[in-house]
């Protein structure tokens, strides 16, 4: 899950925003840089949430390059844009959890957040679905 996606997600149950990100494993995937796309996304990003989520990543230098507050489109230079691009699109959360304010938790496994509210029934799910069923059940127990 990219930070861009995290920035856009809200709790499917309560529509609470933001979901607090706790990342246990992270990854780095190269993505071609597109200035037009980053500039297009800037107005849609909640900057505070983005900064907080980016702090989960071990790269301190890159974090220092990200502006403190919502950047103005005219003042951005290329190194800053590249830093934003890197944090927004190249950093992936592989394993972790998303926590909503009301205590609901959504697991991120193998880079895929599980936002299914009602649990997958275990007995009909069989062996292949047992894992995802477990995750969804945990989420549900904590949510109530």
């Amino acid at each position: 899950m990219r930070l861009l996606t995290h920035n856009m997600l809200h709790c499917p149950r309560t529509k609470a925003y933001p979901l607090q990100l706790v990342a246990s494993t992270c990854d780095d995937v190269q993505v071609p840089f597109s200035e037009a796309f980053i500039r297009r996304m800037l107005p849609r990003i909640q900057w505070e949430v983005f900064r907080e989520a980016a702090a989960q990543f071990p790269d301190e230098d890159m974090l220092a390059k990200l502006p403190e507050s919502t950047p103005q489109p005219d003042t951005l230079d290329e190194p800053t844009l590249k830093a934003i691009h890197r944090a927004l699109l190249e950093w992936h959360v592989v394993d972790g959890t998303l926590k909503a304010e009301n205590g609901s938790e959504y697991a991120v496994k193998n880079g895929i957040p599980n936002l299914v509210i009602t649990e997958v029934r275990k007995e009909s799910g069989g062996a292949d679905d047992a894992n995802s069923g477990d995750a969804a059940m945990d989420v549900d127990d904590k949510g109530q």
Partner: peptide, 8 residues
């Protein structure tokens, strides 16, 4: 290349 989300 896209991001994937498990959701109903």
């Amino acid at each position: 290349d896209g991001d994937l989300v498990l959701a109903d």
